[in-house]
Amino acid sequence: MRALPTRGRPPRDRSARGGGGRPPGAPRNVGWLYVAPALAVYAVFLLWPLVRGFWFSLYDWDGLSEGTWAGLSNYAKTLSDPSLRASFGHALVLVVFYAVIPCLIAFVLVAVVSRTRVRGLALFRTVLFLPQVVAMVAVAVAWQWVYSADGPVNGVLRALHRLGLPDWSRGWLGDFSFALPAVGLVGTWVETGLAMTLFLAGVQKIPRELYEAARIDGAGPFREFLAVTLPGLRRELAVALTLTAVAALRNFDLVYVTTKGGPGEATKVPAYEVYNRAFNTGEVGLACAIGVTLAVLVFAVTAGVGRLAEGRGEARP
């Protein structure tokens, strides 16, 4: 309380100022004045564009001439157009690489860490979390080189080839079968640190006695993980899945920089199609419909995973 600025001044009797006094905690409509600037910027530059985006999505519009009313046909096209459907399919594949695999790897790492006292754990976490703070464009430029014909990945593979293994080297991002998994693995590399950091924070909250009890019962590492660690991390798992799955659905920077959706349409994703349809093929209405669909998907994932975690929580005593 050292910062209170009114030393020595007698408290003002508020009730004496005609009607101005009210009991503490009563509604104070001055609050609106404090919120107004934030609300104005938020409404004009985030909410209004969302409404406008929905409005645009109901038109056939090339961005230049007069648009024509299209009803929900852009949404019908979003769901039926083979190339757009493929892009949503690719997004699902990326969810596996961005969310499922990182959470599995993070579980292994956390299980290991929770059983062994490891020196340098803080450094390990710092390094693994680092990709989270690097601009995705920089990550993408770096990985494009890592995957390139003479890049380090092919360097390692050619070295293995010289040791007698088959030659697996190729231009990963230009390969029809491997471009999407290659993009996905960048996501795995980025998101694993996030999942692990979340789980590490969660594991520290699990009472040590539970582990000791499991060990006294003779549980091996696997049983111990299933019986103690996994149930204790339910909430962290929900958060990790939400954040990483949303990152997968919203993957734009990585695809734009590394493949532009190619080769062919092998790595087209909805977020890239929003940009592509609006500015390359002049289908602004369709682009907005894809954007709105993506927003609905993001919202559904956020609400769905949260509910899953809570629903199971209620079942527990």
Binding site: G31, L46, L47, L50, F56, A271, G291, L294
Partner: peptide, 27 residues
């Protein structure tokens, strides 16, 4: 400050956390 409408306003702002840039960037 517990002013009238604070709860609804908070939910409105909270909703902004899950609006993806992709949905608003074209408009």
């Amino acid at each position: 400050l517990a002013f009238r409408g604070a709860g609804a306003l908070f939910l409105l702002l909270l909703a902004g956390l899950s609006i993806p840039t992709e949905a608003v960037v074209i408009p």
